[in-house]
Each structure stands twice: as structure tokens, then as C-alpha cells.
Amino acid sequence: MIKIIAGGKKNAGWVAEACAEYEKRLRKPFDVSWNFMSEEKLDKYLAEWPFSGREYVICCDERGENISSPEFSAKLEKAFGVGQEVVILIGGAYGFSDTVREKADFVWSFSRLVYPHGIARVVCIEQIYRASQILSGGPYHHE
């Protein structure tokens, strides 16, 4: 299971539709659940760092590491292989504090560009689907 915790408002119609298209293709352990919080609530939630270490926490931030799709799929495979639940954090308009980035297991940058929340959510779910296809040998990803 992959839990995505996103700051900001719930998805606009086109974002929800795009995310739903990828979600319906996903199978365990790549199935996802979304938790939307206001930016203020997300900041408070993360200040208490509610993760126990049984989770592999990925923080999406433009200051993170830019990796390839196969490298991302390998990170997910490794986490699932040791029984960790994957938690992906997508921040609000002001991103994450240094403390949150330091506590995360991996800080992932989609690119050096900054994306609006909706596009970041679609990119995230598409990359999860792509990772599932890479690991299953599906036809979606081409090298």
C-alpha cells in the first residue's frame, strides 16, 4: 500500500480524473490511498512526525534528488521487500521545512521545475503506475 498525504485543497475535476485513471490500473502493493489536509493541518501533523520507522517516507520537494523512473521503482521494490508501507508527502504552496526533509527517508524531486499541486499529484501517481509496470515487466515503460 502506498499512502499519499497531500497538502492543499482536494483535487480539481481534471486532476481527480487523471489520478483515477492511473489508480484503477494499480494492483497491490501499488494500490494507493489519498489523505488531503490543509497546509496548516499538514504542517502540524508532520511537526509531530507520526511515522514509526515501519514506513518508507518519501518527501516530494524540488530541492530533492532527481532520479529516473527505474530508480524510483527500485526504491519502492526495496521498501515493499522489507515490509514497509510507502508514504509519499506532497507539500502545500510553501513546501516542507528543513526538519521534514531531513527526517524523510528520501527527498524526491520530479525536476528542478516547481509544479502546481494538481500537476504534482498527477505526476506522482503516474510514476507509481510506471514503477508497477517496470517491476512487472509490463509494456508501459520503454527504455
Score class of each variant (00 low, 15 high):
A18Y: 06
C19Q: 11
C19Y: 05
C19H: 06
A20Y: 12
A20F: 11
E21K: 15
E21F: 10
E23I: 14
K24E: 13
K24Q: 12
K24L: 09
K24S: 11
R25P: 03
L26N: 05
K28I: 08
P29E: 03
P29A: 04
P29L: 00
F30T: 00
D31E: 15
D31Y: 10
S33L: 11
W34N: 03
N35T: 15
N35C: 12
N35V: 14
N35F: 10
F36G: 02
F36R: 02
F36Q: 10
M37D: 09
S38F: 09
S38M: 08
E39W: 04
E39C: 06
E39V: 05
K41F: 04
L42G: 01
L42F: 00
L42D: 01
D43V: 13
K44A: 11
K44C: 12
Y45W: 14
Y45K: 15
Y45P: 04
L46M: 01
E48T: 13
W49I: 14
W49F: 14
P50G: 09
F51N: 03
F51T: 04
F51Y: 15
F51E: 00
S52Y: 07
S52W: 10
S52G: 15
G53E: 07
E55D: 07
Y56K: 05
V57D: 03
V57A: 00
I58K: 02
C59H: 06
C59L: 01
C60H: 02
E62I: 15
R63C: 14
R63M: 11
E65T: 15
N66Q: 14
N66P: 05
N66A: 13
I67K: 00
S68L: 06
S68P: 13
S68I: 04
S69N: 10
S69G: 10
E71G: 15
E71D: 15
F72G: 07
F72A: 12
S73P: 05
S73G: 15
A74N: 10
K75C: 11
L76Y: 00
E77I: 06
F80G: 03
F80H: 06
G81T: 05
V82G: 11
V82L: 11
G83P: 06
G83Q: 10
Q84W: 07
E85G: 03
E85A: 09
E85M: 11
E85L: 10
V87S: 00
V87C: 01
V87N: 02
V87F: 05
I88G: 02
I88N: 02
I88T: 04
L89M: 03
L89S: 05
I90E: 01
I90H: 01
I90Y: 06
G91P: 02
G91Q: 02
G91K: 03
G92M: 02
A93E: 06
G95P: 03
G95E: 00
F96E: 00
F96D: 00
S97W: 05
S97T: 08
S97Y: 06
S97G: 08
T99M: 12
T99H: 12
V100N: 02
R101Y: 02
E102Y: 09
E102C: 09
K103Q: 11
K103M: 13
A104M: 08
A104K: 05
D105R: 03
D105Y: 08
D105T: 00
F106L: 09
F106W: 05
F106P: 06
S109F: 07
F110A: 03
S111H: 04
S111R: 08
S111T: 07
R112K: 13
R112N: 10
L113E: 08
V114N: 09
Y115Q: 06
Y115G: 01
Y115T: 00
